[in-house]
Amino acid sequence: MKIYLDPGHGGSDPGAAGNGLQEKNVTLAIALRINDILLKEYANAETRLSRMTDKTVSLQERTDDANSWGADLFVSIHTNAFDGTAYGYEDYIYSGLSDESVTALYQRIIHQEVIKLNGLRDRGMKKANFHVLRETAMPAILTENGFIDHAGDSAKMKSAAWIEQTARGHVNGIAVCLGLTKNDTSLYKVTMDGGQIGAYQEKDDVLNVISSNWDSFQTAEIVKG
């Protein structure tokens, strides 16, 4: 599946600014992390970015590139600004689409997954006549990841952990929308008193089995492989 990632603004167009931050840098950080996760963790994900550095790219260039590549999904990443008092996360699809469209379904999925992880106020799902939503030939969503001129939201944007969580939310939504499959992952093999009792994919499962058998073993070993 082809995912086109569009970090908003760049180069001579810094986008919104506030609290020592520029939108073009925040959006690029999120997009690059989304790209890394998709390529490393999913077997059937192919990506392209409108920019991978701080360079100027026109709106027409972005949509033309995505259309000619034949992307299955276009995700444009932005931050918001108003007057320093507004805050939270919202996302947009093209205003000419119905609530029953595939794009609207994708918006609901991605919105839900991002909100789970980004720690921002939920400002809802919206529609707009933005160029990148109107001129794309595939489902397209534009995410507004907080208000850069709001003290609370911008403080989050300065955190590498927040960038990671926001990227993860986007990836989780994209994966559900496009039916992405995870790469084979290593298992955690648990041995107690010299005998293997199981192999688990999730760390929480390892912790649960250790905890539930806490009083019944002298030594435990966890081997990832």
Rank of each mutant, 00 (worst) to 15 (best):
12 S>Q: 14
58 S>Y: 03
66 A>K: 00
174 I>W: 12
77 I>S: 04
45 A>K: 03
164 E>K: 10
59 L>M: 00
76 S>R: 12
116 K>I: 04
1 M>C: 07
25 N>Q: 09
202 E>V: 06
50 S>H: 03
176 V>S: 05
153 D>M: 05
190 V>Q: 07
175 A>L: 03
83 D>W: 07
193 D>W: 14
7 P>F: 12
26 V>N: 09
80 N>A: 10
24 K>Y: 03
88 G>M: 05
18 G>E: 08
184 D>Y: 02
203 K>R: 12
170 H>E: 13
200 Y>I: 11
18 G>S: 02
204 D>M: 12
219 T>K: 10
122 D>W: 03
50 S>I: 03
190 V>F: 04
24 K>H: 07
217 F>D: 09
49 L>I: 04
206 V>M: 08
115 I>H: 09
89 Y>M: 06
198 G>N: 11
156 K>A: 03
28 L>I: 09
178 L>H: 12
140 A>C: 10
148 I>E: 02
180 L>Y: 13
111 H>T: 08
44 N>Y: 06
127 K>P: 11
57 V>K: 02
87 Y>I: 01
152 G>C: 06
43 A>Y: 00
96 G>L: 13
112 Q>Y: 09
23 E>M: 04
187 L>P: 02
14 P>C: 13
191 T>V: 13
141 I>T: 09
187 L>H: 10
197 I>M: 14
198 G>K: 08
64 D>G: 01
189 K>D: 11
2 K>T: 01
217 F>L: 08
221 E>I: 14
201 Q>L: 14
154 S>Q: 07
25 N>H: 10
5 L>F: 03
87 Y>D: 05
171 V>W: 12
23 E>T: 03
116 K>S: 02
131 H>M: 11
185 T>G: 02
169 G>Q: 06
13 D>L: 00
103 T>K: 13
175 A>V: 07
185 T>C: 01
36 D>G: 04
43 A>W: 00
141 I>C: 11
213 N>Q: 06
94 Y>G: 11
175 A>C: 07
68 S>H: 06
95 S>P: 05
217 F>R: 10
192 M>V: 09
198 G>L: 12
96 G>T: 08
68 S>Q: 12
163 I>H: 06
24 K>V: 04
196 Q>V: 08
47 T>F: 01
200 Y>A: 12
102 V>Y: 15
189 K>V: 13
155 A>I: 05
220 A>S: 14
185 T>W: 00
56 T>C: 07
195 G>A: 13
184 D>L: 05
165 Q>W: 04
127 K>R: 15
32 L>V: 01
186 S>H: 12
56 T>Q: 09
160 A>N: 15
155 A>Q: 13
83 D>E: 14
211 S>C: 03
2 K>H: 01
56 T>E: 10
188 Y>G: 05
72 D>Q: 04
162 W>F: 10
97 L>W: 10
207 L>K: 14
216 S>P: 00
133 L>N: 06
15 G>V: 02
